[in-house]
Each structure stands twice: as C-alpha cells, then as structure tokens.
Design a binder for these strands. Structure first.
Lengths: 361, 361
DNA sequence: TTGTATGCGTTATCAT
DNA sequence: ATGATAACGCATACAA
C-alpha cells in the first residue's frame, strides 16, 4: 500500500513489478492459522463442516496474507472451471452489446464468468473450437451458427451447449430463440391490413437462419392473404445494405414497393435514410419501412422505426439458466425455449388498428 | 459422429450426455503411442526437442483419441493461464462492441483469450476484483476507472495491467489513451474560426475522466481565444441527455448557443434530434452540434455528425501489445501511449477551412 | 470436527 | 532425444 517516491510514483517499470513473489497458498494460511491445509480448504467451501473457532482463525490468517484460492488448481480437481464460453461474432450480430452484457450478467449470477470467443466471421467457429476444449469451460453459449458435426462434438466432449438465437440444420440442441416466423407474420398482417400490397424484403446473408425464418414467415402470410409474392433482395445486415437493397428493389420491381421489410433495424435505417434523403420518398407516405430487433437507434426521433423487439434480457437469462441446469446435471428437457417478439409501432409504416386475433396470426 | 435415431436425433436429454466420460489425458496418448508421458507433453510444446518419428506417432495417437491438453493443469505449473481479464462497463462505454471485439482480436493474436468482467456500473470494479484474482489471469485491461488502491493491488499481486482510455487519479499505470484535450482544443479552434462565440458543453458524468479532459481542452482553448466561458451542463452519455442538455443550456443561457459540444456522439445525436424535431432549430444554420467518438450512427445520412474519431483498432492493438510485453517480462517504459483523434467534418457544424497549424493547437 | 494422504493433468528438472 | 520423478495448489476420502 506504501506509495513510492519516484517521479512516476512507480518503483520500476511497472510489470517488472518484482519477480512474481511466490504465490500465497492454502499451506501458508494453514501454517499461520495453526491448522491443516484441508481445514483451510474447507473454510472456503460453502456448507463444509468447520467449527466457528477454526473458521475465524483461518479467515483471519487468509485475510492477513491476502490469500485467494487458485481457480486453476481447484478446477483441476473439481472438474469445474466456473467459466462459460460465449461464441459470438460482431459482424453478424446486431445487438452485440446488449446480448453480451446481458449474458455476462446472467452467467455471473450463477457464479461463473464469460470466456469470450469473438469471431470475425461466424464461419470461424471451427478454428475456434479447439481453443474452447483447451480451456475446460463448464459449458458454452453460442450466438453463432454451428454445424451438426460441431454440435455433436460438444456432446461427445461432454460440454453442455445452448444456442442463443441460432439453430442447427439437423441436430437438436438446447436452444433459446425468438419466434421469427411469428414475428414476420404479425408484421405482414399489420401492414397488409393497412392496405400494403407489394412487399419487398431486404434480407440478411443467405446463410443466416434468422433471416430465413423471417422470410418464411413473411412469405407464408403474404400467400395466405393472397397478396403478390414479395421481391427479395439480399443484404449484409449493415447500413449500406439498406440503401442498395431499396434501390435494387425499385429497379427490379419497376416501381416503389408499398412496404419494405428489412431483416435488421440497421438495414431498415439505411433503407429509410436512402428513401428520404436520396430518393426523396415520403416515409410512411409513399413507402412503409419496418425492421427487426429494436436496437437503440431505432427509437431515436429521426427514425422512430416500426420494428419488433426481442426480449433479450429474458432470453439471455433463459440461456444462462438452461446452461447451468445442464452443467449441474439437473434434468433439462430438450424442447426449445421460444420467446415472442414485441411489436413496436413506430412511425415508419402506415398501420391500421387490428382485431387482436389477427395479431397472433 | 454417429447420428442417433431417436425422434429428436438425441439419445438422452442433451447435457445428461453420458456421465462425463473420463477425460483423455496425456497418459492415454503416451500409452497408445508407446512413449512416455513426458514425450507427449513435449510434442505439444512448440520448440521442444522431439524426434520427427516420435512426434508423428504421438500426434497420430493424440488425434485418434481426440486429445487436447488441459489448460487448467498446464496453467497450474506454468503459471500462465493464457487468459486476460477485460474490465468494461456497457453503460458508460460508448463503443462497447468495437472496443470489445477489437480487444478480443488483438489479444487472440497473442494466443490468449478474454475473460470478460462486464460491469453494470463502473463503480462495481471493487466487488469484481476478487474474482479477477481467483481466475489467475495473466494480465488485465481495464476500460473502467480504477482507484489508486486498486492499481496498487494489481501491482502487489503481480498482475500486469493496462488502462484503456482511462487514467488513475494518482498512481501511474500503463495507459493507452486518446488525447482528449488536444481533440477538444482542435474542435473549439475549428468552430471558433467559423465564427461561433457562445459555446455550450454537454458533459458526461462528472466522474468521467474522459469527459473532464474534453471540458478542460475546450475551456483552455476558449480562454486562449478570448471567447466567453461556455455554459456547462451534465449528462449521462445517453441519448436523452443530449435533448435535456440542450434545453437546459438554452434556458440557463437565455438564448440558443452558437455551438454545442457534446461529450459523446450519442448525446450529440440526442441534442441534434431535439434541436431539429422538437425545437425546430436549423442545424447547422442556427446551431452547430459536435460530438465525440464517431460511433457508427454518427455517419448515417440523417445525422452526418461533426465528431472526432478515436483510432480504436490501433488503441486496442497497443493495449494488447503493451500488456503482453509486461506478461512476457519484456521491458516496458511507463510513458503513456497517446493517440490522436481524427477530425470528422460531418455536416452538423458550420466550419471554415483553417491553416493546418491551427488544427494542431 | 479435524488431520493425513492421495490425486487432478500437466510441465520442468534431471538423469540417461 | 527420451524417460523417471517431482512439483503446481487444491479438494476429497478416510481415519482419527
């Protein structure tokens, strides 16, 4: 605690910091407290059998030595690292901050920590997985798409896995998702009821399952309502894709569509800006625009976007709970946790009030 | 790899997943390869002394057994966990995603992984620190403010530390920062040169050092230029603070200021939206607005904000390099890594071209 | 309740 | 280049 007197308030270049003064172990504490090492160990295990007296002496000694149990050593014997791997890619993940901080909070509630595997591309999972095994994580939450083989490998290695907002092609795994099909259907229903007929969809990358489901839902509902097939263009979930998507749609369609549904808010915002500032279109006067995710900017005055919010907090909590249940060996049924998106009316789409049963359609 | 035939493609509830089939160890590999366990160990250590022949046999055996070294056991003896703690709060950190993914990439370049300590409040550091010690991380990067005592504790425990975009009150630590004073000065210079006289500053939380430096720089330069003192109001770095900040400023000032400098882009955007959509002010006609950070939305057509970009990629790389240098015991001088912000002209502030020497002032 | 002894899976040391 | 052996720091079964 003593402050030094060098001009920098630092003795040496910090980091030289004394050649790693031997670490304080439970033996040191035991010696000082006059008990055995196992007694010390027990004192740090909640619900162990220790007398008040020794507990007090041990804790006092521990405090005076600044003793803190070594998680590496502990995990070697307990086979619990208290770490959870989170696989996530920033590029294809729209609410990286919300998801990650929500996950981190929820995982911390269970006394575990997030070991972050941040992918540049979602397709980098393969190369990353070997690292995941090394670190002996207790489980993993993937916000990136996994192949069947990868899911199987988790199972084979006995590492519990939960997919958040992703699905696997074939293999069944524990998943926490938001019902994208239902959300897209509800959106189309509302727009159709307000008189929109010609739709355009600006999608995410073709391999994005979420985007596929959103398209499927929209398509389904349009068909049911007997409306013309939507024009579909592909984007990258980013701002620029919204603008180019709109231009492409108009060109291919030979006219301005009645409504554009974008697979992400950021694309919807790009579309909106392009419509208003570049094409001079009135939104929602001449064109309705809707997005997905309810990211923060969608709520800003300049946009006030019509969108659908996923209950991310709850989903993160569900994912953490589900994972920890598996880790603890508690029975966990395989059925997917499915949440519903919340419709945010916004002001970028012309909407008519609807009978409630239609909303659920 | 064999797929099962149950209706779910799953044998049991996944996660039951067989009672933790005994882990494959280096002994198993040694046995299969017909060598000693130490031979196996050496094969996984880069630059160890192994013959081509045994290396091949070991690797083959390892592959067939799916062997992967156990990081917990390794770190116990090597005293290297290959994990770096990252302390960051999402609320007070404006570019959480950029920072975090940049840090993760850069740390991965050094063969290490990020153990995430996501704080709800920056002030939660204290409670979090005990966890950091437990996990035996090789070092830490803090994007949250640390007290002097906390910095000292890192040193005492021999855990290398780098502060990213933060400083400590007294203690000197390794820091990577962006020169906020210079940035604010440059901004004021440009605005003053274009004729703005009455400034308002919408700041971040009073304990935010970054915000303090930005104010100091702005104030300094205004004084030098003989301009009236700016009106200062405090916000929370969020969207709403921008609007309320602007209203307060106008009320306290009795008029609309010539220019508002916001301590974050998000506040600047809030200010902008309030000015245009609620107060009906023309920006930059009647009012100039500028922000800091160049977050993605600042670049969107609806805003096109005048702001200053911090070179986050480079800063993250510098932080990672600096930390790893300390971890590896390489000499590291204590002088802070100071980056310069890049001026983004945008279209929300009336600007006049300036002689280049004035920009540096 | 407490202490003794053993093992977790690896790397490091030291012979050979 | 290779193998035996000793740590690393802790938790646990068992004896006391």
């Amino acid at each position: 605690m003593a402050k030094t007197t060098s001009p920098f308030g630092i003795d040496h270049a910090p980091g030289a910091a004394g050649p790693a003064a031997r670490r304080v172990t439970s033996y040191d504490v035991a010696l000082l407290a006059g008990v055995s090492q196992s007694a010390v160990s027990r004192c740090f295990k909640p619900g162990a059998s220790v007398s008040k007296a020794t507990y007090a002496r041990v804790m006092k000694a521990a405090a005076s030595l600044d003793y803190i149990p070594n998680a590496a050593a502990r995990s070697l014997i307990t086979r619990r690292s208290n770490m959870v791997a989170v696989l996530i890619s920033n590029t294809s993940n729209l609410h990286y901050p919300e998801v990650l901080s929500a996950l981190s909070q929820q995982i911390a509630r269970h006394g575990k920590r997030v070991l972050l595997f941040s992918l540049v591309q979602e397709s980098d999972v393969g190369r990353t997985l070997a690292d995941v095994w090394q670190y002996q994580v207790d489980g993993a939450i993937s916000v990136a798409s996994l192949s069947d083989d990868q899911v199987v490998e988790f199972r084979r290695r006995g590492v519990p896995l939960v997919l958040l907002n992703r699905r696997t092609p074939g293999q069944v795994a524990h998943t926490v998702t938001c019902d994208q099909v239902e959300a897209a259907r509800a959106l189309v229903s509302r727009l159709a009821a307000a008189g929109h007929r010609q739709f355009a969809l600006i999608e995410g990358p073709t391999d994005s399952i979420i985007s596929q489901e959103r398209r499927r839902g929209a398509w389904q509902r349009l068909t049911e309502l007997g409306l013309p097939a939507p024009l579909v263009v592909t984007g990258q979930y980013d701002y620029a894709s919204g603008g180019t998507g709109l231009r492409d749609a108009i060109r291919l369609l030979g006219r301005v569509p009645d409504a554009v549904i974008c697979a992400s808010d950021v694309m919807a915002i790009g579309c909106l800006d392009c419509a208003r500032h570049e094409l001079g279109l009135a939104v929602p006067g001449q064109l309705s625009v809707a997005g997905f995710d309810a990211v923060e900017p969608s709520n800003w005055l300049s946009y006030n976007l019509t969108t659908l919010r996923q209950p991310m907090e709850q989903m993160a909590a569900a994912a953490a709970d589900l994972l920890v249940a598996q880790i603890d060996g508690r029975p966990t049924d395989a059925h997917p946790r499915l949440f519903s998106a919340q419709f945010i009316e916004g002001a970028t789409a012309r909407l008519a009030p609807l009978p409630p049963d239609m909303l659920a359609a």
